[in-house]
């Protein structure tokens, strides 16, 4: 790396927090000295106050833990089973054809509409939230990995046919590895969806989790706590996304070598 190059890199890094900083400054001055505005929009220092209070009481950590557990479990279950189903649909175009309208139906139902049913089936514990996170991620994983399986380059399939490979060998040695990038894409989309699923569950009925914390706080007009919850959700999403990015770099190392 040249000197000017690394310099511009540092400059770029300094630019990242700038919009956030600008937002906080505007927020701060806009809400300064007005009880009414602070009641509606809260303010940076009130949010910081609430944050420290929630950290000290252990509430924030506990609620984060619950939401992460729900979202991550649903995410892993949904993405893994979706990928297995989607890739397996490669085996039979008939099954894929029949499955298509059902998958579309499941994908188009708003998860919000399913939430009351799922909660009445699984109870108000974390299981209903895991189920909702699962339902909101599984379809994306199915669709993405099926598309990936169907997008395998014909020259790879031709080679395998010429070499006398069985269908299972073609699946294992070509379809799965070449669809990996699609599965990773599904994972990226699913982080947000899993959090949404878990959140909706908590929002509707729960006794813990960030969704619960936010609902409770907004019922008490405690905007500062609401903001802390929202920020926590954003941070969790960013952390999970960077995990997937890391996984992608590891699995796709042949691309960057």
């Amino acid at each position: 790396m040249t000197k000017s190059n690394s310099k511009s890199k540092i400059f770029e890094l300094l630019l990242y927090p700038l919009p956030l900083l600008a937002f906080v400054v505007v927020w701060y001055f806009a809400t300064q000295g007005s009880q009414e505005r602070q009641f509606t929009f809260s303010s940076p220092e009130k949010v910081l106050e609430a944050f420290l209070r929630l950290v000290q009481s252990g509430e924030l950590l506990q609620n984060c833990k619950v939401t992460i557990l729900e979202a991550l479990s649903g995410f892993l279950l949904g993405t893994a089973s979706g990928a297995i189903i989607g890739l397996s649909l490669w085996y039979s175009s008939l099954v894929a054809k029949i499955a298509k309208p059902y998958i579309t139906a499941l994908a188009t139902v708003p998860i919000f509409a399913l939430a009351p049913i799922v909660i009445s089936w699984f109870g108000i514990d974390i299981y209903s939230k895991i189920a909702l996170a699962f339902l909101s991620t599984v379809t994306v994983a199915i669709v993405q990995s099926y598309q990936g399986a169907m997008a395998v380059e014909p020259r790879f399939l031709r080679l395998m046919h010429v070499l006398g490979a069985s269908r299972w060998q073609i699946f294992r040695l070509v379809v799965v590895p070449s669809s990996l990038i699609w599965v990773l894409n599904a994972m990226k989309l699913n982080i947000g969806l899993a959090l949404l699923g878990a959140f909706i569950g908590e929002f509707i009925s729960a006794e813990q989790g960030l969704g619960f914390m936010i609902v409770k706080a907004s019922g008490l007009y405690d905007m500062a706590t609401v903001f802390v919850g929202v920020i926590a959700l954003i941070v969790i999403a960013l952390l999970l996304t960077s995990l997937v990015d890391q996984l992608e770099r590891y699995l796709m190392k042949w691309k960057t070598q």
Binding site: E153, R155, F156, R158, L159, M160, V162, L163, G164, A165, Q169, L173, V174, P177, S178, L180, W254, K255
Partner: peptide
């Protein structure tokens, strides 16, 4: 053996693993 105009090497495998594809099949 069938060799195409553009190669059909698997990009996710090293050259060695591509060459030893026979062992997998």
């Amino acid at each position: 053996g069938y060799i195409f105009q553009s190669d059909a090497l698997f990009p996710w495998r090293t050259v060695k693993d591509n060459l030893l594809l026979a062992a997998d099949i």
